[in-house]
């Protein structure tokens, strides 16, 4: 089977980010998406700690110790960017002003339920950050993740068995095997990578898939 590398999945997500969009990229694989948005599109990135217009990493020695993104990496501010406090930052999210959030996930259900903040290991202290606010707040939520766990277990399920981040919030899932849309009818294949077949992807998915339309 054809399995995209993480950077290749990020590149695939980037193709679907429209010109002019206000976008929040989650920590980890989602952050890579910005590297692949083509130069003919202007995308404004929000960082939950209070930045609109996040720019690339600063040159060595040029770091502002306060100017970090949600992943605590040093960043820059693009011309036209702005700073604001956390209450305003999350008002921006919950108020529906962000066009898109790209998030990682442990599991996604066929209804678009998202689980990305906690596992069932209670001995480990939980952390949630801004994930729940983003999940309900952005106009659209895209998930970028591997199709299965490292041991080959499906991460796309009829219902999540990890604690939910948000219910029925995911619009589209980008994995190393395929792109899936969450629709009222169920999970519909939007794209199969390479020569992957519907049956191959279905076999690694814990929910019933609908074939691509058109």
């Amino acid at each position: 089977m054809m399995r995209l590398k993480p950077a290749e999945i990020a590149e695939r997500v980037a193709q679907d980010i429209p010109d002019g969009a206000y976008v929040n990229l989650g920590i980890g694989m989602p952050t890579m998406v910005a590297n692949y948005v083509s130069d003919d599109r202007q995308v404004i990135y929000q960082s939950e700690n209070g930045i609109l217009g996040v720019g690339p990493a600063p040159a060595p020695g040029e770091e502002d110790p306060d100017l970090i993104n949600a992943g605590k990496q040093f960043v820059t501010l693009l011309p036209g960017g702005a700073y604001f406090d956390n209450a305003e930052s999350f008002a921006m999210m919950r108020g529906g002003h962000l066009d898109l959030a790209v998030l990682g996930a442990f599991q996604v259900s066929e209804k678009g339920d998202l689980a990305n903040w906690a596992t069932n290991n209670d001995t480990y202290p939980p952390a949630v950050g801004g994930a729940m606010d983003l999940a309900v707040g952005a106009k659209q939520v895209f998930v970028i993740m591997s199709h299965t766990t490292k041991s080959g277990e499906p991460k796309i399920l009829e219902s999540c068995n990890y604690p939910l981040t948000g219910a029925a919030v995911v619009k589209r899932i980008y994995t190393d095997l395929a792109v899936l849309d969450v629709t009222d009818d169920g999970l519909r294949v939007r794209q199969l990578h390479g020569d992957n077949t519907f049956d191959e992807v279905q076999a690694l998915t814990g929910a019933t898939l609908l074939p691509a339309q058109n």
Partner: peptide
């Protein structure tokens, strides 16, 4: 530990 989503934390403070 009282774990609060970040935006809820900010808004409760606000």
């Amino acid at each position: 530990l009282e774990l609060v989503p970040q935006g809820t934390l900010a808004e409760r403070i606000r």
